[in-house]
């Protein structure tokens, strides 16, 4: 795994283990007669316990990459290795197992189940997980210990997103993938949500990848991968990470 060719300009942050790596990823979408390349050869590695931010304008391919890393989509070319095992070309069943046991997702629009309370939304995942934490613990971690029995309709947007984070991390995933988690929130609420993600990353050591087009948010990351036109054009290592409370946008 260490024989991976380093990405141009990439610096190794110490001796950390590689949790997930992608090599030569390409993704073509056929839209009618034209083919659109969403990814044009991406090499990337996520190190265990790090928080990486994927920064770039919309349409730059960052969501496509996240979807492929999370086992939601398959690349046109290239490979994805999780813990040394190849997940590209795996069966639908295997991908499902991969998502169930190893990956936690947080979406821009929360995607909570409206018919279930906060606790039950989290329990939905812990019921099928191998070694989950109790739903109450996950919700306490995101600061919602007091709102366990509220339904999504009774929660604010920020609270709903924090339930979604609790739902994603309750199964103790190896990877936490967040697609614009603050995209639908105002800045103050967004900071609360970001804080929850940082806390999970810090306290549980969950490898986290976070997509945003908000450059300010990148300041909380260990590494920032800048996307443009289907490629990673720049990798930036933050010497000092800022806390969520220090941010403002």
């Amino acid at each position: 795994m260490t024989d991976l060719p380093p990405h141009p300009g990439e610096r190794h942050p110490g001796e950390r283990r590689v949790a997930l790596e992608a090599r030569g990823l390409t993704k073509l979408y056929r839209m009618g007669a034209v083919e659109v390349a969403a990814l044009r050869g991406v090499d990337v590695a996520l190190y265990a316990g790090e928080l990486a931010v994927l920064l770039g304008p919309s349409g730059s391919g960052k969501s496509t990459l996240l979807n492929i890393l999370g086992g939601l989509d398959v690349p046109t070319g290239g490979r994805v290795l999780f813990d040394g095992r190849e997940i590209t070309g795996a069966s639908e069943r295997a991908l499902n197992r991969y998502r169930r046991h190893h990956v936690g997702f947080v979406f821009q629009f929360y995607n909570l189940i409206p018919s279930l309370t906060a606790r039950e939304n989290v329990a939905l995942v812990t019921e099928i997980a191998r070694d989950p934490m109790p739903p109450e613990e996950a919700l306490a971690l995101v600061g919602l210990a007091a709102r366990l029995d509220h339904f999504p309709a009774q929660l604010s947007g920020g609270e709903q997103q924090r339930v979604a984070i609790a739902r994603a991390i309750a199964k103790r995933p190896d990877l936490l993938l967040c697609d614009e988690p603050t995209g639908a929130l105002d800045s103050a609420t967004g900071i609360l949500v970001l804080d929850a993600i940082l806390r999970v990353n810090r306290e549980l050591g969950t490898t986290t990848a976070l997509i945003t087009h908000n450059a300010v948010i990148a300041e909380v990351a260990d590494r920032v991968l800048r996307f443009a036109d289907g490629r990673i054009v720049e990798t930036q290592l933050n010497e000092t990470r800022r806390t969520a409370a220090e941010l403002a946008w």
Binding site: R97, R100, N111, P114, L124
Partner: peptide
């Protein structure tokens, strides 16, 4: 949407 979310969460 709800069902797709569940699929993403790892439901078969």
């Amino acid at each position: 949407r709800e069902l797709a979310t569940l699929r993403v969460l790892g439901f078969s």
